[in-house]
Simulated scan of single mutants.
Amino acid sequence: MLRHQYQYRSYQYAFTLIEMLAVIIVVGVLASIAVPKFLDLQRSATIASMQGLQGALNSAVSLSFARSAADGVQNEAMATITVNGQLIDVVYGFPAGTQSGIGTMVVSPSSDWQQRPSTHLGAYVYWPSRFDVDAWPAQCFIRYRQSTGVGNAPVIDFYTGSASGSGC
Rank of each mutant, 00 (worst) to 15 (best):
H4E: 15
Y13H: 11
A22F: 11
V35P: 04
Q5M: 12
V35S: 05
V35T: 15
V61E: 09
I24W: 08
G52W: 06
M50Y: 08
N75C: 00
I24N: 09
R43D: 15
A45G: 01
K37M: 08
G72R: 00
E76L: 11
I24A: 15
T46F: 04
A14D: 10
R3V: 15
Q42Y: 12
V27A: 10
Y8G: 06
V35K: 03
G72V: 02
L39V: 06
S59G: 04
L63E: 12
S68P: 00
A48H: 06
S10W: 13
K37E: 07
L53A: 05
Y6M: 06
Q7L: 07
A34E: 01
A31Y: 01
L39H: 13
Q74P: 05
A14L: 07
L30G: 15
V27P: 04
L30R: 04
R43I: 15
L30M: 14
G52Q: 10
Y11K: 09
Q12T: 15
A31W: 03
L21D: 07
S49V: 08
Q12S: 13
A69M: 01
A48C: 01
Q51H: 12
S10H: 05
S44T: 15
L30Q: 00
A34L: 11
L39S: 08
Q5R: 11
H4D: 14
F15V: 09
N58H: 06
A66D: 13
P36F: 06
V73A: 00
Q42T: 13
A14T: 12
I18N: 11
V35W: 06
D40Q: 07
Q51W: 05
L53G: 03
V27L: 12
A14G: 10
S32I: 06
V73E: 01
A22T: 14
Q51Y: 11
S64G: 02
Y11S: 10
K37H: 11
V35E: 08
T16G: 14
A66E: 14
G72F: 00
R43P: 05
S64V: 03
M50C: 14
L57E: 00
G72D: 00
